[in-house]
């Protein structure tokens, strides 16, 4: 049991990186739709650079850089050229995916370097919690840091409040002297960098190695989870671990002949849940219910940032 939960925590680590990155960007008002391609190209770049240099750190840095550049392109197209974020993000998804296949050919099946295992001394000896949380590697521990960091930053710092402001009411934020577009640039790129970490976490740890389409659909799943989690880091993280659980359950069910269908259905559950969440937010009875019980409403679903996907013009 302990081991199973530990596997789930590890399997969800890349999704934590990707969803936290996307949450930051979307809360600032920019949709980075390129996730699926970004993660894939980062996974390839991370694995390749680690293979070439022998350093996992260089691999993670390269992965970060790749996704940050893609995110910067989306920010540039959206802010400077006033292009549709969805259009640019979508094209970049397909392009980055194909590029990863093309550039990664030489690294298919080669033996790379795994992120070294690192049990945290002391903490990992604790019963249950030690095995579940502290007997992993740096890539998994990093996901805790990013998760907690994102939450604290967004809700406990002035900058985080500012970030929510430029995503919710850019005009009001601008009137208060906040450089909306510059901050949107910064947060989109930071979010992209985190997405890149997800790629490296796959190719150097969770799905160790490189082959074509290694991380296919995980970016779309991450996008779905961000919505399912209502753009709140803690609920988004809950979505990641829920999906990690589904993955592990699906894997365990696979050998059971009679349940083959079930193990195929589980991976699409995030999308069903996402649609359900989006739907529930707008249902009248849910609105009324939410008005009566604000605590429940916060728990179940919430509205997207009001300024999401909208270009801000200072005129």
């Amino acid at each position: 049991m302990d081991d199973t939960i530990a596997t789930i925590i590890a399997a969800a680590a890349p999704l934590i990186y990707a969803t936290m990155g996307e949450t930051i960007a979307e809360k600032a008002g920019v949709i980075n739709l390129s996730l699926d391609g970004s993660i894939m190209l980062s996974a390839m770049a991370g694995f390749a650079l680690t293979y070439i240099t022998g350093s996992v750190i260089v691999g993670f840095l390269a992965a970060t850089a790749v996704s940050a550049v893609i995110a910067a392109l989306i920010a540039f197209a959206s802010i400077e050229l006033k292009l549709n974020q969805i259009a640019v993000g979508f094209v970049l998804t397909l392009l980055a995916t194909k590029l990863s296949s093309f550039l990664g050919t030489a690294y298919v099946g080669v033996k790379g370097t795994h992120v070294p295992h690192l049990a945290i001394p002391g903490l990992s000896d604790m019963p249950f919690v030690g095995t579940v949380l502290f007997n992993h590697n740096l890539s998994v521990y990093g996901s805790y840091v990013v998760l907690i960091g994102t939450y604290l930053f967004l809700y406990r710092t002035r900058r985080g409040l500012e970030l929510q402001g430029i995503g919710e009411r850019p005009e009001a934020a601008f009137a208060r002297g906040i450089a909306v577009n510059r901050l949107r640039y910064i947060y989109t790129v930071i979010g992209g960098a985190l997405v890149g970490l997800a790629g490296a976490a796959y190719s150097l740890d969770v799905k160790f190695g490189w082959r074509e389409n290694l991380t296919l659909n995980f970016g779309w799943i991450a996008l779905a989870i961000v919505i399912f989690g209502g753009w709140h880091p803690v609920r988004v993280a809950f979505g990641c671990y829920l999906f990690g659980t589904l993955q592990v359950v699906a894997l365990k069910l696979q050998p059971v002949e009679a349940l083959q269908g079930v193990s195929q259905i589980l991976p699409i559950m995030p999308f069903v849940l996402m649609i359900f969440t989006l739907l529930i937010v707008y249902l009248d009875w849910f609105r009324r219910f939410g008005d009566r019980h604000p605590a429940w409403r916060r728990l179940l679903a919430s509205d997207p940032p009001a300024g999401i996907g909208r270009v801000f013009e200072r005129e």
Binding site: E80, L83, L95, F102, T105, E212
Partner: peptide
């Protein structure tokens, strides 16, 4: 012996550049 995804790379690059150059001219 090249990876067959090259076709997709060409298509994606072409569309991305068209969209970006178009946006640049409008700007």
């Amino acid at each position: 012996g090249l990876n067959s995804s090259l076709g997709g790379v060409v298509q994606g690059t072409l569309v991305l550049l068209t969209v970006l150059v178009g946006g640049w001219q409008v700007r």
